[in-house]
Amino acid sequence: MARSVRSRLARLVLSLALPLAVVACGPSSTEETLKKAEHADTRADLEKAIGRPTEIQKLGPIEQWTYKTSDGSVTFVIAGDKVTLASGGTTKKSQ
């Protein structure tokens, strides 16, 4: 009987903790993403700072890395191996 109670308690704790863990692992805000990438000068630095991008577009030696954020997106332009430009846009929520 005690084992059954412990098993139910463990399931209850897991069912409450799992949604919190999923939310905590969600995308950062635009501001947080830009701050994390602030000192990233190369593609390797950028990937180390904020991970793989949601989308990559290539045009010759130029790449555009886009990261979806919780409130919009952040785009970095990479020329060769150097991060040359960063821009972020937020999605305004209607009230």
Rank of each mutant, 00 (worst) to 15 (best):
T90N: 05
R6W: 05
K48Y: 07
T33L: 11
A37P: 05
T30W: 07
D81F: 00
Q57I: 11
V22H: 01
S29P: 10
I62K: 04
K92C: 04
S87T: 13
S70N: 08
A37F: 09
T91R: 11
V83I: 05
F76I: 07
L85S: 13
M1Y: 09
V83R: 07
E63R: 08
M1A: 15
G26I: 02
K58Q: 12
G26Q: 04
L59A: 14
P19W: 02
A79D: 10
C25S: 14
R43F: 06
R43H: 03
R3K: 10
I50C: 01
Y67R: 13
G51A: 05
V77S: 09
T30R: 13
M1C: 02
G26R: 08
K58V: 13
S70F: 02
T84P: 08
A40P: 00
L12H: 10
D41S: 12
C25P: 01
L46H: 13
G60Q: 01
G72P: 08
D41A: 14
A44G: 10
V74N: 08
Y67G: 03
E63T: 01
D41E: 11
S73G: 10
V22D: 00
E31W: 06
G80R: 01
I78K: 06
S15A: 15
K82D: 11
A21S: 15
R3N: 00
S4N: 11
K36Y: 11
A44Y: 01
K35M: 15
S70K: 14
G51R: 05
P53M: 09
Q95M: 01
A24L: 15
I78F: 10
L34F: 00
V23I: 15
V5L: 04
T30K: 05
Q64G: 13
L59I: 02
Q95W: 03
K58N: 09
S7Y: 12
R8N: 06
S15Q: 05
P27N: 15
A79T: 15
I78L: 06
A17D: 04
R43A: 13
L9V: 12
P53E: 03
K48V: 07
T69W: 00
A24E: 05
H39W: 03
Q95E: 07
S28R: 15
L34C: 03
E31N: 09
T90F: 08
V74K: 03
T69Y: 08
G51H: 03
K93N: 01
L9K: 06
K48P: 02
S73R: 13
L14Y: 04
I56A: 11
E55G: 01
T69I: 06
Q95S: 08
G80I: 07
S87I: 02
V5N: 01
K68T: 11
T66P: 00
V23S: 04
S94D: 06
E63W: 01
E32G: 02
V83T: 08
S70V: 13
P53A: 07
G60A: 12
F76Y: 14
L9I: 11
L34D: 02
L9H: 10
L85R: 12
T90D: 02
E38W: 00
S87L: 02
Y67C: 00
H39G: 09
S29T: 15
V77P: 11
